[in-house]
Design a protein around this nucleic acid. Sequence first.
RNA 1: GCCCAGGUGGUGAAAUUGGUAGACACGCUGGUUUUAGGUACCAGUGAUAGAGAUAUCGUGUCGGUUCGAGUCCGACCCUGGGCACCA
Length: 817
Amino acid sequence: MNAVYDPHKVEADAQQFWHENESFRATESADGEKFYCLAMFPYPSGRLHMGHVRCYTLGDVINRYHRLKGFNVMQPMGWDAFGLPAENAAIKNDIPPAVWTKDNIAYMRSQMQRLGFGIDWSREFATCDPEYYHWEQWLFLRLYKKGLVYRKNSVVNWDPVDQTVLANEQVVDGRGWRSGAVVERREMAQWFLKITAYAEELLSELDEMDGWPESVKSMQRNWIGQSQGVEIDFAVQDSEQTLTVFTTRPDTLLGATYVAVAAEHPLAQIAAEQDSGVADFVAQCKQATTAEADMATMEKAGVATHLKVTHPLTGDLLPVWVANFVLMEYGSGAVMSVPGHDQRDWEFASKYGIPIVQVVEPTGDEACDIQVEAFTEHGRLVNSGEFDGLEFDAAFDAIADALAKRETGRRVTNYRLRDWGVSRQRYWGCPIPMIHCNDCGVVPVPEADLPVVLPTDVTFEGVSSPLKKMQDFLDVKCPGCGAAARRETDTFDTFMESSWYYARFASPDANTPMVDDRVNYWAPVDHYVGGIEHAILHLLYARFFYKLMRDEGLVESNEPFKRLLMLGMVLQNGKKMSKSAGDAGDPQKLLDKYGADTVRTAMMFAAPPDQSFEWSEAGLEGAARFIKKLYALVEDHTAGGTVPSLEVAQLRDDAKDLRRKTFETLMRADDDYGRRLQFNTVVSSVMELCNAISRFEPENASDRAVVDEALKHAVLIISPIAPHVAHHLWHRLGEAEALVTASWPEVDEQALTQSTVEIVVQVNGKVRGKIDVAADADKDEVLSLAKGADNVARHLDNKTIRKEIVVPNKLVNIVVG
RNA sequence: GCCCAGGUGGUGAAAUUGGUAGACACGCUGGUUUUAGGUACCAGUGAUAGAGAUAUCGUGUCGGUUCGAGUCCGACCCUGGGCACCA
């Protein structure tokens, strides 16, 4: 009787082997071209969910495939350990965030080990380790000296009851999720990184990044949002001030009938002081969240002020409105409004009875009635005095030149991208290394005093950051004057930590700043794997940070991630899995029941990596059956005793077919693993190969040799996906060396050749028959065979042949009339 | 609202360069083995009509290009992701 497949035994043995042999320990001196394989590190939320299983299995498949291909692979793992959920847990369960986080890491690490990921655990770290964030503080101070860090006011969500700043996620329908109070917009001084200084490079380099999906590059391009336009100054009446706006449509300038400013704009503040109606509106605008999606969908509203500005070309006075859709964060916080040629302005002007003037007409015969809707296409100028008759490009230039001549405007390249606000009014994050002194103002912590360590022995009273009450942390001498001063209590945005962790993995113990020379062996990451939800923010910040590190002389290349695989989401009830959506999709019970190989195989088989799908356990049984079947095939085969060497010349047709299937499978898997990154079809093609093996009935020694070859290939091809059972079966098939040291095999081209091929015969595009023809048959031969096929002949009867299309080795289409 | 994806049997999906739609699985139906259940194995399984051969229809909707469209083009509908403090 054959041994029964016991996944727990097989998996424990394989994992013990990898552990004892340090199979996944990466060194710079090993043979082979380096290959840095990285999946986005997780937030230690408590337990793995199926989204994690998918992401890290995909990473591990790429890792193990590249090992077979002879690369010197490094696959590290760490923890994105700072963040909001730890504080929520602390408030709810009275556990310090550091303790909660440490426990979660221990549990999740054990789950990852149970899944058999080929990770170099010697490189592990968590971003809450002072040895890690030390260097983040160090870089921040360097950037401060370079002028890439600055402080300015920006808007936050303020909960007036809990007296705390809320994340957008914590604002539900305009109210604080805990207190239920209506959230207010409040301005606070915050630290910013000048990512806009790198906007041009971040944009233009996308064109060279062949290893990234077009969709992601497109999202980043749109996010950076480069546009060519004109900055126009409007003089404020009875004032020394000017109001500057940016427009990409200077050709419509003569159609501007008002200007609109944000509620936080200085002019709005001035107007509010003098007009209670404006003050009411500005106050009303404060009762809103800071989320741009909400801003974009809310009802457009505004209020006229008594202020007027002078049109720079006509000298006409235009009214200044305060409008809720103008963002203070974007551009100058003011826009010129041309209701005739911008739909949002049109709707606003229609609502408030502001004049709508047509200054552009269509050049063709398109309909255009600006009483019905705005005409937003490019066209020919009218009602624009000396500029009448000019079309877009000429009008743009003429008006830009006219403004430049009067020194009331200038051509500029504008970006939608805004500087990165990195301050968070939270406890569980990396302390911002700054000191507030009454005399010296804001003073950076001296490099020698780093790291500023976050105290971890804390108790939460209410919801606000415990740092604000910790005298030991707060009290510090001013590095400038020595007087008593106060530490900054804000911490960094956690995107800071995730912007350079991939570089730290190359030299996780480096005490030279941030990273050491090993980074230039491993970086850039050759293959980065992660969820599509990170397509913009994380990846853009990480690219930015890498360039900052490059400009500090720390890394030599320009981009951190050569090739990018963006995973679709594993959905749960139609939404992405998250801590807030509950803890369903826990893989633990599946691992206990089926073992890691089955869970991994089911996950890979469920869908191609870039596709989102709803998690379901339905596929588990199929994956388990497949692995059992492969196991049984190997057991049956090896029970037959020794295998003779393969004599290709003597094979019967069935055996040749199985050999062809073996190498077709190998070729396809190589392409799917290496180029297409589609692993569900690797599983299905190995399933097909297994089905072919089990249908094949060996009659002699040669046949057994063919089966042996097919099984070894099947085991090797599936090994990146189901590595434990593959490790076991590899030895059962008589291999002395462990599978982790094996090489990806070569395709036997001769085995792929076929003497005849099946060709589909269509009549008028409909399949009417199939014919077998010699692979080297010429066109006439194929056509005559096609016409002779039974069902085809019937459809050609009494018809005139109009056209004959022959696609070699594939298809014939006969068009009749 | 804006940007990026996706929509194919009862279900997950395959179809890689415009060339056989539904590979491979799940489920279901029938059968063999089994005291039974489970397992394993065999057969069938897009819809409609037909005993069958076969025919017609069929890839979100509508329209177009082509000998030929799931694939290309245009318009629309729906679902998911992102929108700068969830990570």
